[in-house]
């Protein structure tokens, strides 16, 4: 296990380094932030002064060197727009995005797993048909359209839930989150549903397929022959086997949810890093874009690591195979 952790850690460093290079080149090759920041009527001298103060007059390799050196000291540059450290901007807004993503993921699991189980255990019944049709809708309707429909129905027509912004943030055991106030929850529900709808469909299908593939296996029949209750068979014998593909896919999808939060945050004006990213791209605020990408990559790496550990906890063939 220790060897595994160290190996994964070194891999992660390498991935981060490569990402840093790609991101830097990609971002710095596009556009000229000076155009955006400097008033069109500014004099040439003023112009040169701003460019110099931002370090934009130096050669690209030197900018990169400075960038890496500073990055190693936790400094990913100052936002041109806010004139504050870009990493601070990202970290300030990260909790809002994580809250949205994790809550969305929980919704996807809480709704998707039971529906998938019901579908898989009653294949080709009316219930199954209804659930599967619903999941096709979840898959095929575009996320932004779903979001607008949610706002239409629940905010505009019914007036039940607010459609923009993050609500009041409460504190519990030192954790700050919208989950702890009613106002916060109300604001969170619509964006979280929007973000999770696609994943609900995915979880339903994964669970259903898992059930359908596992139920006919010999060990399920053997479990019946032992006289176990149907509950024990479904929730222990079958479910533990389904968890393996579920964890793998959910881990991968958590990353894509973080990425898709960009769309949801834009629709619902959710003050997370996704919205910040879009705003920063519009304003060519390079340091923020770079900081965003590096933080997201770090999160991806961390999630993958957690998935691997969970995976080995659930599947003894992985866990014990490594040891011997």
């Amino acid at each position: 296990m220790t060897v595994f952790v160290i190996r994964r850690f070194l891999q992660s460093i390498a991935v981060l380094a490569v990402t840093a290079i790609i991101v830097f080149i990609g971002v710095y090759a596009i556009g000229d932030p000076a155009e955006m920041l400097i008033a069109p009527d500014a004099s040439a001298a003023e112009r040169a002064q701003v460019v110099a103060s931002l370090g934009l007059d130096k050669p690209l390799w030197e900018q990169f060197g400075t960038f890496i050196w500073n990055a190693l000291h936790g400094d990913l540059g100052r936002s041109f727009v806010f004139n504050r450290p870009s990493i601070t901007l990202i970290l300030e807004r990260l909790p809002a995005t994580l809250e949205l993503t994790l809550f969305g993921l929980c919704l996807a699991l809480i709704i998707g797993i039971p529906l998938g189980l019901i579908s898989g255990l009653n294949p080709n019944t009316a219930t199954d048909e209804v659930i599967m049709t619903g999941s096709i809708l979840g898959f095929s309707l575009p996320s932004f359209w779903q979001g607008m429909m949610l706002i239409m129905i629940f905010s505009v027509w019914l007036g039940w839930l607010p459609s923009t912004g993050r609500g009041q943030v409460g504190e519990l055991l030192g954790i700050h989150s919208s989950l702890f106030t009613l106002d916060g929850l109300k604001h969170l529900i619509l964006p979280a549903i929007n973000l999770s709808l696609f994943k609900v469909s995915l979880v339903i299908r994964l669970t259903r397929t898992g059930v359908r593939e596992t139920m006919p296996l010999d060990f399920v029949k053997f479990a019946r022959a032992k006289g176990l209750s149907e509950n024990r068979i479904v929730f222990v014998h079958v479910f533990k086997n389904i968890l393996i593909p579920l964890i793998t896919v959910i881990g991968l999808e958590l990353g894509s949810m973080l990425a898709f939060a960009v769309v949801t945050e834009t629709i619902f004006a959710w003050p997370g890093i996704g919205k910040l990213l879009i705003d920063s791209i519009m304003r060519l605020d390079r340091p923020v874009v770079v900081a965003y990408l590096l933080v997201i990559v770090s999160l991806f790496i961390f999630i993958n690591f957690v998935v691997d550990v969970l995976y080995s906890l659930v599947d003894p063939r992985v866990r014990i195979g490594e040891a011997s």
Binding site: F219, F222, A225, K226, G227, P316
Partner: peptide, 19 residues
């Protein structure tokens, strides 16, 4: 089942739950 009548299956590689 399993109490008064028990059964042993053909393929031992498949009858036990792997996890």
């Amino acid at each position: 089942r399993g109490k008064r009548i028990a059964m042993i299956f053909q393929d031992p590689m498949m009858t036990l739950n792997p996890v």
